[in-house]
Write a protein that binds this DNA or RNA. Structure first.
Lengths: 202, 202, 202, 202
DNA sequence: TATGAATGAGAATTCATTCAT
DNA sequence: TATGAATGAATTCTCATTCAT
């Protein structure tokens, strides 16, 4: 069990970075928020960059883990998989707004080496959307003529939730999930084929 | 006509703010970029905030003007109006990436008074999307069950273009306009009624 | 006329660097010594390095100028020229102990680019010793079998004066000059040939 | 036998001090170089000063021991004794450049109490040169009119070797010894009298 | 004997801004 | 109108050292 400092610092830094942005964040303020001396902070992390790196990675871990869980819980159908990913993303944005904010916008302040790693994981996240969409298009379940732009749009609309959603408002998280899944499937023009064939066969 | 300095400063500041963010932007660097002495900068603008204010407003002006022009050039049909707004937004993001960046993300660093004004104009911009969508829904042209989320999504997907689009790539700006208009109409579930009636009447 | 700050800063920095060494020198302390605010220091010089650079160059200028003057005042005879250079060096070490200290030992803390320039000027200074010694050897006035080591030794013994000489002691500067010139000529084994033979031949 | 740590620490500290100077040396870096935890370092030595003290003394011990050995191996003749001391000094500078560097330049950072002791030992080292020179002058073997300056110069030229000598270059250590002994004897104006008179008297 | 945690003072530097001219 | 000088607060980070275990 690490001596408490670590977790407190991570949490404080995440908050500070989310509120002020990387440049605006003050290492002093992070230490204060964590209830830790400035020197202690440097005892744990070698600097602002290291803190950013830790937080971004931790946020990415959490997001990918959640997405993995949702995917595992659902079926293999492209529509179900896309729904699972959207669900995970919406839930993540709602439940962890600071983590969302950090993994979404602070990555560009990572130093080059960490940048690459970060981009790799972001590409991984993109794949979570891309694969079901591609499969859906291949199987003629998704009829969108623009799968790439559709993918980008789905991601963007999910990400934007963090800009305005505040828990305790009119919409519950479940409402949101339902609606965004519906919107995403609309955007890729999902038309389940099997039922029609069934009718056709009658 | 302001004494030259103004325009150079606006342009330099816009670039600096877009590249570094408000906090990371350096007033010295702006002056240098504009080829103007630091004192001269302070002669024209009372400080960093004033510069931000000027830039954000100028960006907003440009965007709203463009949107107005596109709207004026099109028809009254909700679908046409939504298409016009999407067109304007996509074009703006493509042609003025720095202006886009600034009006999109620097607004939150305005001081409270300016914040309010900024939010007002942002609401104005939101209305550009909201009104056609609402009209379309009322006229049963847009069948989306979630007009609010659809509006947010359309805005988000347009905004996200600035994150990845670089002129000179595979897609021309016109390609992009065409696709994003299509996606937006898909998202609101646009189904033109009149033609069907015509068919039905046959 | 530069606004006073410059000269005061140069003097203060020279003293601080000489006393504390480059690493031990504190930029704060320099500013205080110069009676200037810390920010003012940065207004004039871009940092510790720039200060070091200015001081080293200024010291080198002074030394080379003094050596040039002494050389110009003397004859062309290798012995006279060597004597002139030794004289200049001894006087410089005595009169400007801080300048001596700085050009002698702080140069290695210059950043690479400035290092090169510094080494160039140091080589120039070395030439002041090397050329007369070489000429003396060629003309059989200096009979040392080791001109290179002799040159190094002459330089070293002159430099070492700064380690112990304090004005106001037993020896005047002129005493010192006389003695070190004698030692240097001894070291290169100076034996004026022509005059003796001439007399002997009479 | 001290528990391994000691020697590793001494060696690491010597290197660090030689490379960075006392002020620039980092106690952390020394611990790392020695492969020892920071706490372990403080277990062995009470601080930076203690480390410096240990190293300076150890260097002095080594130098004085080497000089003693060379002296013991030679004759009683002032010239032979001076040659022995120069030999020892040159060899020391060549073989132990870091030890040389430390005992030569780090001593001034010792705290006052240790300073005194250090100066005492340095005076001891000076005596190694002074005594043979004085004896040589008394016995009219050395005819220099400036025995003090000659002594200082001999010491300075030996010390300066550390500034440029790198093993593996053109000159071997033995070459160097030969040349510097010759230069030193030249500087004190060594003219062996006794043998000539003896022969002359025969 | 040995160690990881923690500290407070101080380092150099950059910042937006003001002032006297 | 225009400018170079000057400022004080804040920045990140490193330092030698101490403490509790």
């Amino acid at each position: 069990m690490p001596p408490a400092g670590h977790q407190a610092l991570i949490a404080a830094a995440r908050l500070e970075f989310a509120e002020q942005g990387y440049v605006g964040a003050s290492i002093r303020s992070i230490a204060q928020r964590a209830g830790v001396s400035l020197s202690a902070l440097y005892h744990y992390y070698s600097g602002k960059q290291a803190l950013l790196y830790a937080i971004v990675n931790e946020g990415m871990d959490a997001y990918l883990a959640l997405a993995g869980k949702e995917l595992a819980a659902g079926g293999d159908d492209p529509a179900e998989r896309l729904a699972a990913v959207v669900t995970a993303t919406v839930r993540f944005r709602c439940q962890y707004p600071e983590k969302s904010s950090v993994i979404f916008s602070a990555g560009r302040h990572l130093e080059p080496a960490a940048q690459d790693q970060y981009r790799g994981r972001q590409a991984e996240a993109t794949q979570l959307f891309q694969r079901p969409i591609q499969d859906g298009v291949d199987q003629r379940l998704f009829r969108t003529p623009y799968p790439d732009e559709a993918r980008r749009s789905v991601i963007a609309m999910c990400n934007a939730i963090a800009d305005w959603y505040r828990s305790g408002g009119e919409l519950t998280e479940d409402d949101l999930v339902e609606r965004y899944v519906a919107l995403a499937l609309t955007l890729v023009e999902y038309h389940p084929l099997a039922p029609r064939r069934a009718r056709a066969g009658t």
